[in-house]
Computed example of a mutant assay.
Amino acid sequence: MIPPIDMGTLSPPAQKIAQPAAPQKLQEMAARGVAPGMKPGELTTVLVLLTTSERASVRETAERTLAALPDPILTGALGSDLPPLVVDHLARLYPARPPVLEKLLAMPRIDAETLLHLASTGNETVTELIAVNEERLLKNPRVIERLYLNKNTRMSTADRLIDLATRNQVELTGIPAWREASTAIKEELIAEASDEPTPDDMLFQETDALAEQLTDDNQGSDTHKEDEEGKEHVEEKFLPLYKRLADMTISQRIRRAMLGTREERMLLVRDTNRLVASAAVRSPQMQEDDIALISRNRNISDEVLRVIATTAEWMNSYTIKKSLVENPRTPVMVATKMVPLLRESDLKSISKSKNVTSPVKDAARRHLDRRK
């Protein structure tokens, strides 16, 4: 929580205006930015205090004034050491003003909460400004997580952030596929920071635009179809997206799995690289219907099925548990462990099925015998 403004640091005139019992007309004048003799930084601080006033007219006027501060006042305020709460207020009011945000990010008392907000919502310029301060990032690893999960952060910058954390043995638990991302980055070349986006950054952005277009056009269609022999093939309409993903590095595909569309996740969960496939199924955007589809797919890797089986959220679904037991690609130890969780009618069917592995059928029979 951002600490409140210490009234004791204000001048006597500012304290008088900020007091709840101050004359209403005095507060209304200050809320309009009229406070003769008060320096820009202190005036801005008073305005932030007035946005919490119980007087609606004062509160609303102060909010409007803060959102449209004249340049001389704003520039003057940014040249002083502002309290953390004031920095946070201005950061939220001026998200599209890079010069303002650059000065706010340089404030010695900027709060971690403000950094987290900017890292989550900032555009490319803002995320680049945050990413250059490695010392601050290592002190606040959650900021690295928010930057990584912000689509506006360049891919090359995200790679450098993962590399920074990995080299300093900082575990980013807020990234669902942290283990996969950290493992992948050790084998890749890291691009130097640059003023302009790299070709990889452009590929990442172009892929995002294509994926969004396909989502709009297909409204959740599956990305694969099976031939008569049961082999999967990418649907023709998804081939351009599939090829773009194939051109990416492992780290890039892992981040697309985290941030991309449903179609991207359904493509990447079938990736031949286990790190990518595992990252896709760990995506926080995965839905139960998608997991149900994946869990009964016999072309999915055993590692993906293992991840599903060890995720508590998905194990609340009876359909998913049943599909995992019936899927011959599910590791035997995983499938047999779930056998006792199935209904008797399903166990009878599994014990006779030709599509279930022998160890799982035997486990189903043994469990039926015990129930009898």
Rank of each mutant, 00 (worst) to 15 (best):
Ile2Lys: 00
Leu104Phe: 12
Gly8His: 04
Ala91Asp: 11
Thr336Ile: 10
Glu102Phe: 08
Pro340Ser: 11
Thr114Glu: 07
Ile5Trp: 12
Lys372Ile: 04
Met333His: 13
Pro199Tyr: 05
Leu293Trp: 15
Ala119Trp: 02
Thr272Ala: 13
Thr65Ser: 04
Glu128Ser: 10
Leu275Ser: 03
Ile300Ala: 04
Pro328Leu: 11
Ser53Phe: 05
Thr183His: 11
Thr261Cys: 02
Thr44Glu: 02
Ile17Ala: 02
Pro359Ile: 07
Gly41Pro: 11
Ala257Pro: 07
Glu313Thr: 15
Asp88Cys: 03
Pro83Asn: 14
Thr9Asn: 07
Lys103Arg: 15
Asp88Val: 00
Leu118Val: 01
Lys321Ser: 04
Met258Gly: 00
Ala119Phe: 07
Met38Leu: 13
Ala30Pro: 04
Thr61Glu: 10
Ala158Val: 13
Ile308Val: 13
Asp163Ala: 10
Lys361His: 03
Pro99Gln: 10
Val132Glu: 13
Leu149Val: 09
Glu42Tyr: 03
Pro23Ile: 12
Met107Asn: 13
Lys225His: 15
Ala18Gly: 12
Ala112Asn: 06
Lys352Val: 00
Lys237His: 12
Ile175Phe: 12
Ser251Tyr: 00
Ile73Glu: 05
Arg55Val: 14
Ala193Met: 00
Arg136Asn: 15
Glu235Trp: 00
Ala131Gly: 15
Ser194Val: 00
Gly33Asn: 03
Ala56Gln: 10
Ala279Thr: 08
Ile250Ala: 13
Arg253Gln: 09
Lys151Trp: 06
Leu239Ala: 06
Ala312Gly: 01
Ile300His: 00
Asp163Thr: 04
Ala191His: 08
Glu196Tyr: 14
Arg270Cys: 09
Ile17Thr: 06
Asp201Ile: 02
Arg282Glu: 13
Ser53His: 09
Leu149Cys: 08
Leu293Tyr: 15
Glu196Cys: 11
Val46Ala: 11
Glu235Asn: 11
Glu229Ser: 11
Ser349Ala: 15
Val48Phe: 12
Pro4Tyr: 01
Tyr148Gly: 00
Val87Trp: 02
Leu275Thr: 01
Val307Asp: 07
Glu288Leu: 10
Arg167Cys: 01
Ile350Cys: 08
Ala14Leu: 07
Ala280Gln: 08
Ser53Cys: 11
Glu128Thr: 14
Glu235His: 07
Asn218Tyr: 09
Ala279Lys: 04
Val46Arg: 04
Met29Asp: 05
Pro284Trp: 02
Met315Ile: 15
Thr249Asp: 12
Leu43Asp: 00
Ala96Gly: 04
Met107Ser: 14
Lys16Ala: 15
Pro359His: 11
Ala68Thr: 11
Leu129Ile: 05
Asp163Phe: 10
Met258Glu: 12
Glu124Met: 10
Pro98Lys: 05
Arg32Leu: 01
Asn152Thr: 03
Asn355Thr: 04
Ile110Pro: 08
Leu161Lys: 06
Ser53Asn: 06
Ala31Pro: 15
Asp81Asn: 14
Ser317Ile: 07
Val334Leu: 10
Asn297Gln: 05
Pro331Gln: 10
Arg265Phe: 08
Asp195Gly: 15
Val269Glu: 06
Ala363Ser: 13
Tyr148Asn: 06
Ile320Met: 07
Arg270Met: 15
Pro3Arg: 04
Thr121Ile: 03
Leu26Glu: 05
Asn123Gly: 13
Glu196Asp: 15
Ile73Gly: 02
Gly174Thr: 07
Asp163Asn: 13
Gly79Ala: 06
Arg265Tyr: 09
Ala277His: 01
Leu342Phe: 04
Ala18Ile: 08
